[in-house]
Design a protein around this nucleic acid. Structure first.
Length: 271
DNA sequence: CTTCAGGGACCGG
DNA sequence: CCGGTCCCTGAA
């Protein structure tokens, strides 16, 4: 099966550091949350195996009105360049649990390390499945992690993140956190999880729930913002006030601005 | 071999 | 608010 896309790069979107639930195998992208999905882009076609067109488009942010979003964000020269460079990316929609685990594991870590951790956790806490003659493990399951306990989890060598991961798994197990909760309620609840602070929360909202107004800021983003948007920050000191300033400036699609800026800056090593 | 930073969070002051 | 500390990994 296949469908057509415009102005979209699957490789760039899935390699941007916004998702850790997709794995590249040869020339295909594989994800296994619930059931395996395999994707391959050929020109303006996305070939897919497993899943439906609708759910794949949702997962990849392909339902977003990207034309309007770009137009709305094109507020200054810097973002104009970022859009020019990164405009074929979409904000991913990984779901609540995958994003929560992924970004807890991202704390003080680089991308290859995060991917390795997910992969390792999948072998212990994921379901095994054979597809097309190859073995896949599903994204780590919070119930398995919770029931496996602390000692087992320590074998994963997650360092100080071990207790964070267990806290998240226990929380999801206990509260059955639903994506149908309002964003405000969810916000407070997620902050109860050890290892989820303001930055990780923003990543969960943006990449897990597709709340396009979320604006995650890491050390890189702070550097860029200080250099390019100091007049917008206008003396804001802590994380929350800086976020407020940037969201006020960029508006309801601030999350897309973050993705474009981050991708553009990082790949061009702009400091 | 040692040193240090990496998409932060937490705790104490 | 600010600064030290946390665990592990890989690069220098």
């Amino acid at each position: 099966m296949e469908f057509t896309v415009n102005d979209f790069s699957l490789d760039k979107t899935l390699s941007a550091g916004q998702t850790f639930s997709w794995e590249k195998r040869e020339d295909k992208w594989v994800s296994f949350i619930g059931k395996p999905i395999i994707l391959k882009q050929v020109g303006d076609k996305i070939e897919y195996y497993g899943g439906s067109e609708d759910e794949i488009k949702k997962r990849l942010g392909l339902s977003d009105d990207i034309i309007s979003i770009r137009a709305e964000l094109d507020k200054d020269d810097f973002l104009d360049k970022a859009i020019e460079y990164s405009g074929t990316l979409r904000v991913i929609n990984d779901g609540l649990w995958p994003a929560t685990l992924s970004f807890i594991l991202s704390i003080q870590s680089n991308i290859p390390l995060i991917l390795r951790r997910i992969s390792s956790l999948s072998r212990t806490y994921g379901r095994e499945s054979d597809l097309d003659g190859k073995t896949f493990y599903s994204f780590p399951n919070y119930t398995e992690i919770k029931e496996g306990g602390l000692e087992a989890l320590k074998n994963q060598k997650l360092g100080f993140r071990t207790k964070f991961v267990l806290s998240a798994a226990e929380y999801f197990y206990k509260h059955e956190l639903s994506e149908s909760l309002g964003t405000e309620d969810l916000r407070d609840r997620l902050l109860d999880i050890k290892g989820v602070g303001e930055k990780v929360l923003d990543c969960i909202l943006l990449y897990g729930l597709h709340d396009l107004s979320a604006f995650p800021m890491d050390v890189w983003m702070f550097r860029i913002l200080t250099k390019e948007y100091n007049h917008i920050l206008n003396g804001a000191k802590n994380y929350k006030s800086k976020r407020q300033a940037m969201v006020n400036y960029f508006g309801k699609y601030a999350g897309y601005a973050q993705l474009f800026i981050y991708n553009y800056s990082r790949l061009n090593k702009i400091k």
